[in-house]
C-alpha cells in the first residue's frame, strides 16, 4: 500500500468507516464527475453516495496535494512516528472514573451501608500497577444525617478529603489481560484513609472480555487502624471492622 493511498484511505475512513476507498476514490477521477452545487464546484461519487460524498473541489485538491507530498521518505518517517505514538497511547493506564466503592458496617442496632459511585480507578497493563482515589464526600448513605456525621465526626473530610490506594499486582503478567476469562490476582499496596496509611494485601477478581476488564475486590478495614475514633456513647452502633467492596470497569476498546 503506497503512502498517498494510505493517507487517502485514512481520510475516507475517518469520514465513513464503512467506505471502500478503492471503489469510491475521488482522486482517481474515473468514477467521479464535477458538478455545481449551490455555486460550489463539487466532486461527487457517481456510483453511489458512499465514501467521501460531495467534497468541495478546492478541498479535494488540497488533500490531493498533501497526499502526494507525503509520499517521500520524510513523510514516511512522520507517519511511522504518528503510528508509534498511537501505539504508546494504547499502552497508557486504563482509567475508570465511575467506579463503585461501598462499605458495610454490621452492628447490633443498625447496619450502615454507603456507596460512592464516583471512585476513580486505574490499572497500568505495562507494569501491573493499580491505583484508586475517591472523595469521602461522595459516599451516599441511606440516611442523610449519617452522611453528615460520617464526614464531620468520623473521617473529617474537610481535613482529609480523599481515600486512596496504590499498589501492584503480584506476579504480574500482561498476557493474562489479553485473553478473555476470569482471573484472580493478589494485589499488595498502601491504603490511605483519614490521612493514615496502612499496608493492604487483597485479592482482585478480573473478568477480562474483548471490550473491558471488570475488576472487583473485597477486604476488611479495621477502623481503629486509621485513627477513626468511635465514641463509647453513640446511638448509631458502629462496627469496629468495616467490609469494603470496590468494582471498576476498564474499557479496553474505548470506541465501543
Amino acid at each position: 500500500m503506497s503512502y498517498p493511498y494510505l493517507f487517502k484511505f485514512l481520510v475516507c475512513y475517518a469520514k465513513d468507516p464503512n467506505s471502500n476507498p478503492r471503489r469510491t476514490d475521488p482522486f482517481n477521477g474515473s468514477d467521479v464527475h464535477q458538478h455545481c452545487l449551490n455555486g460550489i464546484v463539487c466532486q461527487t461519487d457517481v456510483n453511489k453516495g458512499t465514501g467521501l460524498g460531495p467534497v468541495p473541489f478546492l478541498v479535494s485538491r488540497y488533500i490531493r496535494r498533501v497526499s502526494y507530498q507525503l509520499a517521500d521518505l520524510k513523510s514516511m518517517l512522520f507517519v511511522l512516528l504518528l503510528v508509534s505514538s498511537v501505539h504508546l497511547y494504547a499502552q497508557g493506564p486504563l482509567i475508570d472514573k465511575n467506579g463503585t466503592a461501598r462499605f458495610y458496617s454490621e452492628a447490633p442496632v443498625e447496619n450502615i451501608e454507603a456507596i460512592n459511585d464516583k471512585a476513580v480507578g486505574a490499572i497500568d497493563l505495562s507494569n501491573g500497577s493499580v491505583a484508586v482515589s475517591m472523595l469521602m464526600k461522595d459516599f451516599e448513605f441511606e440516611k442523610s444525617l449519617m452522611k453528615e456525621h460520617f464526614n464531620e465526626n468520623y473521617v473529617e473530610s474537610d481535613k482529609y478529603p480523599k481515600s486512596t490506594f496504590k499498589g501492584k499486582i503480584l506476579d504480574f503478567d500482561a498476557r493474562n489481560f489479553s485473553k478473555p476469562g476470569s482471573y484472580v490476582f493478589k494485589v499488595s499496596g498502601e491504603l490511605t484513609i483519614h490521612g493514615v496509611t496502612n499496608p493492604l494485601e487483597t485479592e482482585i477478581q478480573c473478568q477480562v472480555s474483548n471490550e473491558a476488564i471488570a475488576v472487583t475486590t473485597k477486604f476488611i478495614v479495621a477502623v481503629a487502624k486509621f485513627k477513626i475514633a468511635i465514641p463509647k456513647i453513640v446511638f448509631y452502633n458502629i462496627a469496629e471492622e468495616v467490609e469494603v467492596t470496590a468494582s471498576f470497569n476498564f474499557k479496553t476498546n474505548p470506541s465501543k
Binding site: 497508557g92 476513580v120 500497577s129 482515589s133
Partner: peptide, 28 residues
Amino acid sequence: LSLLLIFNVYFLYAQDDLLSQIDQDLDP
C-alpha cells in the same frame, strides 16, 4: 516536530506514579 511529538508522548505517559495521575481528575 518529531521531537515535539516524542516528548509529548513521553510527558503524558512517563509518570511512574499512577495515583498522582488519577488524583488530578478528582478535584471537584
